[in-house]
Each structure stands twice: as structure tokens, then as C-alpha cells.
């Protein structure tokens, strides 16, 4: 398919990338391109300038901060997450979920930064990173700032990253004995989610977030509170999920009605919490 005419730049540093993004109207960052190239084909997006982040090696790194946070560069691919020893040690759920995104070819190109900056409500990583209490580092010409997931995701295809800014990394606390779970129902085996749920169980309690039921990840706070007593047996978890569906206002489409998504939200949340409680979620 023929794309609209576009100009292309391949900066050698993050500062140069930000200057290009800030200095050109209609400029967009190009990471793996597994969404952007397709929406350009469909003319849903027609950026005038693509700023390719391919040469920014510092954005491709996975490591640990001095405070012990797992730091994932925005250009880290799903394939890198899957095979990373750092991820395996610190938060293996990230690798387990990344291994189910798209297919081999998409995982070789698609990036963590692209997944969260596209902020499609059906993407895997936004609810997962919300539950893991990740922080997002956004850099612009005026400096950089860190924001939590609940401030980062602002709407459908909308994040805290403004014009002329770049997400540089995502920082995730290591599990430290917490159990993580991720469950849901997809269209096809590894297809798009109809609904998904992420849960984590730690000494601080239970955190649960749902994907595909709202513009941004939705925390299941009432269910979290209902589980604060510490009983994470199957009956208790099922009881805690009652009413979760009714509290949601999910979209209905060809893949599932709003009522079906409400039901799936409860089922998925129960499965995610039980996985997390049994410590099998990261395996």
C-alpha cells in the first residue's frame, strides 16, 4: 500500500530526537512501527515527519536503577522482554505476558514504549503496568518527569506524553515475593483481548486492574478492598468479584456485548487473583 508522503529523520541521541519532535509540526516518534505503519497505511494517521528512534541504544536497555527498580527502555522489544534475565529475576509476569502479544514477527519489532504510548484500550501492557505500580519517565526540552500509571494513561490513544516529548523508560518495582496474575479472553489464541485482568498479591494487599472495559485501565478498588482481609481462597475471591461487572461501563462491539464484557471482567479478575495468590502467575 502506498503511504502518504512523509519526511524521515534518524537521530543519534535522545536530545536530538526531542529537538526533532519539538521542532517539526506533525512529527511523530517511530518505534517498532507495528501499529504506526499500519495506521499510516489506512490514513488514520498521516504524520508529516517520522522521528525514528532505532539508533537510540540507551532506549533499548533493560537494567536496574540504584533504588532497585527494573528499568525498561522505551525501545525494548517484546522479544527482549521474553528473553531478559533481568525481567526473569525481577518481574517474570512481564515476560509471560509479552510472549502472548501478537506473533513472532510482531514481538521482534514491537516495543514496550509503543505499546503504552499507543494506549489502545485492548493493549496488554497498560493494565499490567498499572497493577505493577510502574512509573513512566517522559522527557521534553524542559527536562524529564516521572508519572505513575494512573496519570500516564489519559484516554483512548492518549497519554501524558505531549507534543515534543518522548517516553524514555518504564520503571517497575521488583516483585519481592509478590505473586502476579494475568488472565482474560482473547479473539483467537493469542489475539486481541475482549477483556483482560491483572492482579498482584503482596504484603501490601491485592491490586487488580481491568483492560478493554474503559478508555484507560480500570482499577477494581471495591474488589481489592473486599480481599483486604487476607482470605484469598477461591470462594472468597469469587464473592469479592460480585458486583464488579455492574460497576463497569464497557463498550459493546462485534466481539462481545457490554454485558458479556461485564461478566468476563468478573471471571477474568477472579482468575488473575487466584493465579497471583498461588504464585503461579509469573511461571
Amino acid at each position: 500500500m502506498l503511504l502518504s508522503e512523509v519526511a524521515y529523520a534518524r537521530p543519534a541521541s535522545v536530545d536530538e530526537a526531542i529537538a526533532l519532535l519539538a521542532g517539526n509540526d506533525g512529527a511523530r516518534a517511530l518505534a517498532g512501527g507495528q501499529t504506526l505503519i499500519n495506521v499510516m497505511k489506512a490514513r488514520v494517521a498521516s504524520p508529516e515527519v517520522l522521528v525514528d528512534l532505532a539508533d537510540l541504544a540507551e532506549l533499548r536497555e533493560i537494567g536496574f536503577s540504584s533504588a532497585g527498580l527494573l528499568e525498561i527502555g522505551a525501545m525494548v522489544t517484546y522479544a527482549q522482554l521474553v528473553s531478559s534475565s533481568e525481567v526473569d529475576v525481577a518481574r517474570p509476569i512481564l515476560a509471560r505476558v509479552a510472549a502472548t502479544i501478537g506473533d513472532v514477527q510482531v514481538r521482534n519489532r514491537g516495543t514496550v514504549g509503543g505499546n503504552v504510548c499507543v494506549a489502545d484500550p485492548t493493549n496488554h501492557l497498560p493494565p499490567l503496568l498499572t497493577v505493577l505500580d510502574a512509573t513512566f519517565t517522559v522527557r521534553g526540552e524542559g527536562g524529564e518527569r516521572s508519572v505513575g500509571a494512573e496519570d500516564f494513561f489519559k484516554g483512548v490513544y492518549l497519554t501524558e506524553v505531549g507534543e515534543g516529548e518522548l517516553l524514555t523508560k518504564v520503571s517497575v518495582p521488583p516483585s519481592k515475593g509478590a505473586g502476579d496474575g494475568f488472565a482474560g479472553v482473547t479473539i483467537g489464541k493469542h489475539g486481541t483481548y475482549i477483556v483482560n485482568a491483572t492482579a498482584t498479591v503482596s504484603e501490601d494487599g491485592v491490586r487488580i486492574a481491568l483492560g478493554c472495559v474503559g478508555a484507560v485501565p480500570v482499577r477494581a478498588t471495591a474488589m481489592e478492598e473486599a480481599l483486604s482481609g487476607g482470605d484469598l481462597g477461591e470462594d472468597a475471591v469469587r464473592a469479592a468479584a460480585e458486583g464488579l461487572g455492574a460497576s463497569l461501563d464497557p463498550p459493546g462491539d462485534v466481539h462481545g456485548s457490554a454485558d458479556y464484557r461485564r461478566r468476563l471482567a468478573e471471571v477474568s479478575a477472579v482468575r488473575a487473583v487466584l493465579q497471583a495468590a498461588s504464585g503461579t502467575g509469573g511461571q
Binding site: M1, Y8, R10, L30, G33, Q34, I37, N38, L50, D52, A54, A79, V104, Q105, V106, N108, R109
Partner: peptide, 20 residues
Amino acid sequence: TVLLDGDPVKSCMLLAVQAD
């Protein structure tokens, strides 16, 4: 599908300039 530095990728989701 082609192999880019050994990894399978879909060549319809990549600009030629990205393969530089």
C-alpha cells in the same frame, strides 16, 4: 516475512529506510 539481522519480521510493516 523476511529475516532482519536474523529475526523474522513482516516487510509490509517496515519502511525501507528503517532497514538502513
